[in-house]
Design a protein around this nucleic acid. Structure first.
Lengths: 247, 247
DNA sequence: TACAACTACGTACGATGTACGTAGAGAGAA
DNA sequence: TTCTCTCTACGTACATCGTACGTAGTTGTA
């Protein structure tokens, strides 16, 4: 135990959040990799082989670095996920400032999020698990809040409620993306068949009469297109934030 | 390769979903453990040491069984999570049939879910990740659907939409529980301090003017009690399902 | 020039999920 | 009853994971 260089203050303590750690400190040799490159490598891996395939070893190998070198950039594996998350938020095609029509602005934001989650099947699951506060995520937050300011209803609400709405919107998009991934081809047909077998068997026991009625009733009406479902549920959500839709 | 006993049909294939696997097949010695006991052991572990501490080895040890014996009951680790999830759904104190006031019935359901998530800090995260279809979860689904039938608005909707609402309600409760766990004491004070430091620094750059305004604006109004926030957001959600509240 | 801070990375440890094989117990068929 | 087949139980073994630690090399600053 080194006696007393100085009783490690909170200031010298190593931060647990990666965004508090500067990417470059200016001392020592120039790092061979950037956070963006690391995130890109991890994302490519996750897109190709699933999130479980994203290991420190594999990401390092993809970068052409030694496994333990990666720990200079990403002190914990969690942080790798943070980088991935923020990189996808950087993919959103958003204008610098919202256009001024809150309905259009928030629909755009939601659709960009959904599009990213469709590009990256692992994304929704990650978003639901971890809050993301990187620079790109903050830009999105700012866009959202700016859009709300054009709404007479929403701009009258306290700041806390507006932040709540942001979480609500994000959560809703994530949930929809996850649901869509589960029912639309995502999983193997095997799994779907099993689920149907199982539900049919359970419903047939008569223990769940209302479920039986609901499932049976759905057979005659054609299922909605996912995009229509998304638009519907999104508008329902937006109307709780912005008041009734304009037209 | 064994020549041709029979080309393994889908019927003989081992099911991927644990609920399709009977707990007892009637042949051979009686199993020493029940699914309920296994779930209880796993839940106790998760409550005490977090979800990451739930490993096949530790659960087996808690049961007094050999590690690999557990695989007779739980062929994949995922299935262990399914058991845990369904066991918590069994904790809900719900009447056999809803009382007939859809607002009261759904509020009761949501509060029971939230209470379970407060008892089991790992639960919300799991719910958000995995769909649960065990017997207890089906009972909840049935309760929900039964409650909707007393609502003139909701009962007119197609079955698919009603199922959607169920997912929406569950998702909302999970998100709230996760959020609450993050801000209310759950994490270390260290993490909170870091987040504040970070946000303050970022906001001070002037790159996020609307975020700055929103965070600054929140300082003068007292934050709402979590229970009040939950009640508010729940009622907002319910009114999109059931129409405007009765009184 | 000397030092301090940084990067790079190999080795090693403990933990995990689980494939596989063996041994034995008990239910149904004869 | 006795045989047989299926199930349970569980030890061993392996690949893979996150990452602690130590060493060697590099570079901005004093």
């Amino acid at each position: 135990m080194p006696p007393a260089t100085e009783p490690k203050t909170d200031a010298t303590a190593v931060p647990g959040m990666i965004w508090l750690r500067p990417e470059r400190t200016g001392r020592g040799p120039e790092p061979a990799h950037s956070r963006a490159a690391i995130a890109a490598a991890a994302i490519e891996l996750a897109d190709a082989e699933g999130l479980d395939a994203v290991s420190m070893r594999k990401v390092a190998a993809a970068l052409g670095a030694g496994t333990m070198s990666l720990y200079n950039y990403v002190p914990k594996k969690e942080h790798l996920f943070d980088l991935m998350l923020d990189a996808t938020a950087g993919e959103f095609a958003l204008p610098d400032e919202p256009g001024g029509d809150p309905w259009a602005d928030l629909r755009l934001l939601a659709h960009e999020e959904l599009a990213a989650m469709r590009r990256h099947p692992w994304l929704a699951g990650l978003c639901l698990t971890r809050p993301s506060m990187g620079p790109n995520a903050l830009r999105c937050t700012d866009f959202f809040l700016a859009a709300l300011e054009s709404s007479p209803v929403a701009s009258a609400l306290p700041g806390g409620t507006r932040m709540e709405f942001f979480a609500l919107l994000n959560g809703h998009v994530c949930q929809f993306a996850e649901w869509e991934r589960n029912v639309t081809g995502g999983q193997s047909a095997r799994w779907q068949a099993e689920l149907i077998t199982y539900l049919a068997a359970q419903v047939a026991t008569g223990q769940y009469p209302h479920l039986a009625a609901t499932l049976a009733g759905g057979a005659d009406t054609a299922p909605l297109e996912p995009d229509v479902m998304f638009a519907n549920s999104l508008d329902r959500l937006l109307s709780t934030m912005l008041g009734p839709p304009p037209a």
